[in-house]
Design a binder for these strands. Structure first.
Lengths: 109, 109
DNA sequence: GTCGACATGTCGATTATCGGAATATCCCCG
DNA sequence: CGGGGATATTCCGATAATCGACATGTCGAC
């Protein structure tokens, strides 16, 4: 139950791959769009993060077909589980935030 | 709109302070409890994070009364706004996660 | 044939973040 | 008075994550 938090970038990558397998380049764009521009990794951050996810077995990589260039990344079962766990963690944080009164002047409570 | 993500620790600190002002040490415990043990900062991480939040003006620090030892941290208006913004970001990520089919065997779609 | 989008990497530098050791005080209990 | 545990904070070294730049190559369009 000691759900270690995941970086926002990793989470976005997993979610982008949950939709469909993609190339690294496509992931860069997908993450940008998904996050409304909040997360915009350079290539360095991106491939470093992908390598970490590969090492942890959360994603898989396979060569794209014969003629095609590039590596296609896909979500593994473990990756889906991890994303789900992270989503649960976020939900708990949000629930907490709702319990607190963060709104400044609106007639709260 | 380029909502820079916040670390889980920072978010938990702001939420803990939204409930009531606290000392650093109390924050350590509050964060642990709030996160169900997922976030358990050592003292080093804790005070470093507090310093960062102070630098960004998201929290304030004042000496505790005459006789008392220690510094009492409180949430600033900017801090509440930041927490709110982060909560919004998390909500968007969660919405995304819900749209994806992460459940493995439950008869999805 | 050159331009821009697609695609995959590597490198070095800079931050960010973390955990633990060390320090000190306060308060209770005997 | 003395020890011990909770409170409270600082400093330090190590690791993790990010960024921006550079390098390399393919592809289709114009």
């Amino acid at each position: 139950m000691t759900d270690t938090p995941m970086t926002p970038l990793s989470m976005h990558l997993l979610l982008a791959l949950a939709e469909q397998p993609r190339h690294g380049y496509g992931l860069m764009q997908a993450v940008r769009e998904q996050s409304d521009g909040a997360v915009r990794p350079g290539t360095g951050s991106l491939y470093a993060a992908l390598q970490r996810l590969l090492d942890d077995g959360l994603i898989g990589a396979e060569d794209d077909g014969e003629g095609r260039r590039g590596t296609r990344y896909r979500l593994t079962r473990a990756g889906a589980d991890a994303a789900l766990a992270e989503a649960g963690r976020l939900q708990r944080v949000l629930a907490l935030a709702n319990r607190r009164d963060l709104l400044p002047d609106a007639g709260g409570r």
